[in-house]
């Protein structure tokens, strides 16, 4: 693991450890070491270093809300904003527990894209009308309700093989 321009460069072993943790974060250092052909103490040291440097942010449980009986609806809001107010709108959205994800995007206009959860259509509308539309800088809102999910994955090191190859090559030098 090397530092360059405030970012941490990971070597191939770090990436393989991260990949293993993303597959199953509950496996032991010994199990990871065994599957990668390295000592468990190496796995331990590298994981601790990556935790310290904020590369591993947290270990969490992925819950299937539907199976857990939750009958919520999920919607994607596209919020057109005044560019001067955009960051403030995004920060305010982040404070609401109904908002799951917030992104900004610059296409023809500055947009905020946010994923929102609500009990039903009425509570979704109530939330948007009373908490999002009144925010200064909100110009208009388009909301699409999600009806069917075809794929949902979280970012994984394995999803980005180009980066992996680049660092592997770099670490081989």
């Amino acid at each position: 693991m090397k530092f360059k321009n405030n970012t941490v460069a990971l070597d191939a072993t770090d990436l393989r450890i991260l990949e293993a943790l993303q597959e199953n974060a509950r496996q032991t250092y010994t199990a990871i070491g065994k599957s990668l052909g390295i000592a468990h103490s190496t796995v331990y040291d590298r994981i601790k270093r990556m935790e310290r440097h904020g590369i591993i942010k947290e270990y969490t449980a992925v819950i299937d809300a539907e199976r857990a009986g939750a009958k919520n609806i999920i919607a994607i809001m596209t919020i057109f904003t005044d560019p001067k107010e955009s960051d403030k709108v995004a920060e305010k959205l982040c404070e609401a527990p109904q908002i799951l994800e917030v992104y900004t995007s610059l296409s023809e206009e500055l947009l905020i894209i946010a994923k929102v959860v609500a009990e039903n259509q009425e509570s979704l509308h109530e939330f948007i009308a009373s908490s999002v539309a009144p925010l200064p800088g909100v110009l208009r809102i388009r909301t699409s309700m999600i009806t069917k999910k075809f794929k949902e994955t979280r970012f994984s090191i394995a999803n980005n093989p180009k980066q992996l190859t680049f660092i592997k090559e770099k670490s081989n030098k």
Binding site: A75, A129, T143
Partner: peptide
């Protein structure tokens, strides 16, 4: 005040920008 304004929507979650 702004937070008590009437906000015009065309359907659930679709705000026209008029209040």
């Amino acid at each position: 005040p702004r937070e008590k304004a009437f906000y015009f929507f065309t359907s659930i979650g679709n705000y026209t920008g008029e209040s």
